[in-house]
Structure formats: C-alpha cells, structure tokens
Design a protein around this nucleic acid. Structure first.
Lengths: 127, 127
DNA sequence: TTGCATCTACGAAACAATTCGTATATACTT
DNA sequence: AAGTATATACGAATTGTTTCGTAGATGCAA
C-alpha cells in the first residue's frame, strides 16, 4: 500500500456503512445514510461510482443491482486520519492528542483499564 | 463560546503560525508558510482578510502593515478537531482513538509516564 | 406487450475552498 | 519629485466536493 487515497467526508460516510454492514447495493447504503441525513438516491450512486474509479470500493456487476465492497481497511483510514490530525493540529505529537482526547471525554473505568493494559504492553515490548 | 467557526486547512496553517509566534503581519505569516508550501503573497493576504471577517483573527490597522492576532484558542480548536474525528471515524469512542494513536505512534518513556499520570488523575477525580 | 418501478450512466449545476491578477494607496530612496 | 518596493482591497478564475436532473436499460406485473 503506497499512498492511500484520502476519502472525502461523504465518501467516508459510505465506507462506514460498508464496513459495518458488509458488501451491499447503492440502495441499501443510501437508505442507511438517510437515517441521519437526506439527499437524493443518485447522489449516493454518483459517489459510489466515483469511489469505484478511485479504488476506494470495488463492485460486482453480475446482477443489475451492483454490489459494492469496501476496498480499504477501516483501521488504515483511521490511522491515516489520526496521522493527519497529529501532524496538522498537534505538531506531530501523538501524545498531545491522547492527552487532549483523554482529558476532555468521559472515559469509563473499563476503558481506562484497557488503555493501561496497552501501555503495559508497549512498555514490555520496548524492553 | 457557543459554536466556534471551524477553520479550513489553509486557515489552520495560518492560525498555527500566529499561535507559535504571536501577533504578526501578513508578510511574516506568509514567509513562515512558504518554508513548507508555496503560494502567492496575496493568497495569504486574502485568507487573513477572510479570517478577520469570520472572527478567527483580529487585526490592528494602526500601521500600514496590519498586525493580526489569533482570536481562537489553540486548545479549543484541537478539542473541536478531536471531537470531529472521534465522531466521524471512531463511532464516538474517544478511547478507540486513543488506542489507535498510542498503538501506532512511537511514544517515549516520558510520554507514557505523562499519560499514566493523567489516568491516575482521572481515576482520582472520579472517586 | 404495455406500463411502472428501479437500476446505471453521465453531464452539469451549486457550493465551498484556494489561488491569483490587478488596481490603488502609502512609504522610502535618490 | 520621480521611481521603486510593499501594503491592502477585491473581483474573478480555478479546483474540489456535493447534489441532482435526465436519459436509457432492464425486470416485473397486469
């Protein structure tokens, strides 16, 4: 994976549906999206066509209704977005971002434990 | 502070210069920016005029060369950006973002300690 | 087989962000 | 005072993103 294409906001919304529900038609994705926002069916279709050109998704055209599949991993996109945020807003310091996120969002006991475990793991790996 | 205006990428670059070096002229900001990217002087000028209208910066026009000052706090913008990322890419879970950031970026001993201290503080406050 | 629903394809409008050219004003140098 | 450098103002071109209208193909139901 050389340099992944960065999805736009609208493209990310579509990827999220495909990540969560797996391969699906334009119709399905469109209806999921319209739970929250509203725009026309051909708008969603157009995006998914564009995303196909860009390689963000691939599609199976055997049936009249094409079936789309995400062609990028959720964790890769997340990493890319975190990287960008770290570099643009946190001067390259992931730690500063972590502090900001931890300090300003409610974090449960269980979540804190999970983070502590991860830190332990990082420390162990560093030995 | 009700709902802060969200800076665009180019606007954020300018804010970063003002945050780091304090109040300054268009000329100064422009030259700092051109260390990394290159675009015309009037482009930077135009942005700073737009940002003045939006209230992202304020300016002192006493001198021929106007002096601009950031009118939003760095930490507020950071928080806003983290919030957006958490909600768009991490299903609202700040913890998932923290795990991603911690897991994929080199973090020094000292930084890990700082995070551990913050966790302790959060746990203490929760009691 | 006619008509209705639903699909893809695609051009282009609408909107937002970025970039620059040009006009005009002001200071500085000789 | 004239010429040069540098400032602001601002309209508009360019580019990127989002949205939709319309045309044409395909399946299905009466």
């Amino acid at each position: 994976m050389t340099d992944q294409y960065k999805p736009t906001d609208a493209e990310l919304e579509i990827l999220k549906v495909l990540w969560e529900y797996g391969s699906n038609s334009v119709r399905f994705v469109h209806e999921k999206l319209n739970d929250t926002k509203s725009s026309g069916y051909t708008t969603t279709l157009k995006f998914m066509q564009i995303m196909t050109e860009k390689g963000l998704v691939i599609r199976n055209t055997d049936q009249r209704s094409h079936i789309y599949t995400a062609n990028v991993k959720e964790s890769d996109i997340q990493l890319q977005m975190v990287d960008k945020l770290v570099n643009t807003a946190f001067k390259g310091s992931a730690m500063k971002l972590v502090m900001q996120a931890l300090g300003n969002h409610k974090t449960s006991e269980a979540e804190l434990k999970e983070i502590k475990d991860l830190i332990k793991k990082i420390e162990k790996d560093a030995e």
